[in-house]
Design a protein around this nucleic acid. Structure first.
Length: 492
RNA sequence: GGCCCCAUCGUCUAGUCUGGCCUAGGACAUCAGGUUUUCAUCCUGGUAACAGGGGUUCGAAUCCCCUUGGGGUCACCA
């Protein structure tokens, strides 16, 4: 059967050695989108052949991250499937068979060179500015001798016998035709001395066993592809189709790394990035629906997804645009949802009680800041000044409070406010009256009032601020500020 | 260094396969105005790119070659 007519089966194959990387998340996303757009299957396979490094905790956090992004898998951990197991550490029998076959058919051979020897050879070659491939001494050792040395207990690895003089052609969906010469490929290690197979070997073996039709992965794997294709050829199987996605770059133009910002999806979750915004943004990195569409839903993506619309060049992770997108999502969220998203951050900061998810002040806070947030966590410093203790006056506020008659004005506003029912029906009108009586512009009154109320000059309209603060706290802040100013006047 | 990939505004990109509709479109950022009691939002407008050089062609951002630049990779990691 030709690969093009095979049912679409794609996989994301994380190695549970840490949190899910942003790049990995996007790769998973593209795989998912392709499967969903083609009516195929999206599977997860855990690459845990390096027993030293993998951890259950990493796996859980990776699965959580994928779920958070809304990437559901049809086969894999926790859901099973017909092609399992989906943990490489549980697939040893499969690999064992292939090893034996490879040894028998001669495309795998035992290499007895020690790591130290190889290391030395590499260094020598580097010093002599020579290219070094591998130690060829064992490539043509007779089967009997190799067998004998193995029997004698000598440690060995299994190397893949790379044929010489061949062209390996990859018809990449994104990159077009890429040709490698087999002469450039070393006799790579397929099986470690402890019998654990290595990545390139199991990857091909499992992709074949799981009938993966399309391998969609990061461009850093492009150079591995010839090795994997050779495994298919040795097994007399047809390789899958490939699509190598460009890398996500940091501000420095290099592969995104911790140096230049958060690289783990978990970091973004913790900081309160809205999931649909991050989902959308990840798509925009290296993919476009058309010349205009910036914001789209999962359904619209599935509808429009096409491997041909993935670009070839690497993309810098543009946090400015991400923040804009997040803010846009937040502005469009129904208030109830936004409140639910914000509540955990406020609770964590001790600004609301665990059972307070629907109080009036909270609802007003949410409404007042909806258009001022780009991340959920940004509500915390804002709420702190309104729900918590009065924050210190910032520089601009101090300046606003330093004008002539400010103390007097605050007193007037406070007095007028005290006469009003609560919440005041028309606070702006009230301020206007005070301003008119004092023959001042409205701003001359609003500014100091705002400063007295919030300690700063920016923020939601004061009508909302009053409601969030409540009558008692509002009046207290105004009066305290008023008194402080009168005092300093009296003294000075 | 070898091999491989890539190259449009500062950034993400459309346009490239199937040359002409491109006086190169959109978005973010930025700048300037407007709305608003401040901030934010919102609206309007501006600045800003086909890396360079050769070809091919009536015509090239688009095809070919070279140069330059950037990236990836060279493990008993994945």
């Amino acid at each position: 059967m030709s690969t093009s007519s095979r049912p679409v089966r794609v996989r994301f194959a994380p190695s549970p050695t840490g949190m899910l990387h942003i790049g990995g998340a996007r790769t998973a996303l593209f795989n998912w989108a392709y499967a969903r757009s083609q009516g195929g299957k999206f599977l997860l396979r855990v690459e845990d052949t390096d027993t030293e490094r993998h951890s259950e905790q990493s796996l859980q956090s990776i699965l959580d991250s994928l779920r958070w992004l809304g990437l559901d898998w049809d086969e894999g951990p926790e859901v099973g499937g017909e092609y399992g197991p989906y943990f490489q550490s549980q697939r040893m029998e499969h690999y064992q068979q292939a090893m034996e076959r490879g040894l028998q058919e001669g495309w795998l051979y035992r290499c007895f060179a020690t790591p130290e020897e190889l290391q030395r050879q590499r260094e020598e070659a580097r010093a002599a500015k020579r290219n070094w491939k591998f130690d060829p001494r064992f490539r043509n050792l007779s089967a009997q001798e190799a067998e004998a040395r193995a029997q004698a207990g000598e440690a060995f690895v299994l190397r893949f016998r790379v044929p010489s003089g061949q062209s390996i052609v990859i018809d990449d969906h994104i990159r077009g035709q890429v040709v490698f010469s087999s002469d450039e490929v070393e006799d790579w290690v397929a099986v470690r001395p402890n019998c654990m197979p290595t990545y390139n070997f199991v990857c091909a073996l499992d992709d074949a066993a799981m009938e993966i039709s399309h391998v969609i992965r990061g461009e850093e794997h492009l150079v591995n592809t010839p090795k994997q294709i050779m495994v298919y050829q040795a097994l007399d199987l047809e390789p899958p189709q490939y699509a190598h996605v460009p890398l996500i770059l940091g501000k420095d133009g290099k592969k995104l790394s911790k140096r230049t910002g958060d690289t783990a999806l978990g970091d973004y979750i913790a900081k309160g990035y809205p999931a649909p915004a991050l989902f959308n943004f990840l798509c925009l990195l290296g993919f476009s629906i058309d010349d205009k569409t910036e914001i789209f839903s999962r359904e619209e993506l599935i509808q429009a997804f096409d491997l041909r619309r993935i670009s070839k060049a690497g993309a810098i992770f543009d946090t400015d645009k991400l923040h804009w997108l997040c803010g846009d999502f937040i502005r469009k969220m129904p208030l109830v949802e936004l409140r639910q998203a914000l509540a955990p951050f406020l609770q964590e900061a001790g600004l609301i009680d665990a059972d307070d998810s629907d109080s009036q002040p909270l609802n007003q806070l949410v409404a007042a800041f909806q258009e001022r947030l780009s991340l959920f966590s940004e509500i915390v410093p804002q709420a702190r000044g309104l729900f918590g203790e009065f924050p210190a006056y910032d520089e601009k506020a101090q300046k606003a409070l330093g004008g002539d008659n400010v103390g007097r004005i605050l007193g007037l506003v406070a007095a007028a406010l005290e006469q009003e029912s609560w919440p005041p029906a028309n606070f702006a009108g009230l301020v206007k009256e005070v301003a008119a009586a004092e023959e001042l512009g409205m701003g001359k009154v609003m500014k100091p009032v705002r400063a007295a109320l919030t300690g700063t000059l920016g923020g939601p309209d004061l009508g909302s601020v009053l409601q969030i603060l409540g009558r008692e706290r509002s009046l207290r802040r105004l009066k305290e500020c008023h008194l402080a100013l009168e005092d300093s006047l009296g003294q000075g």
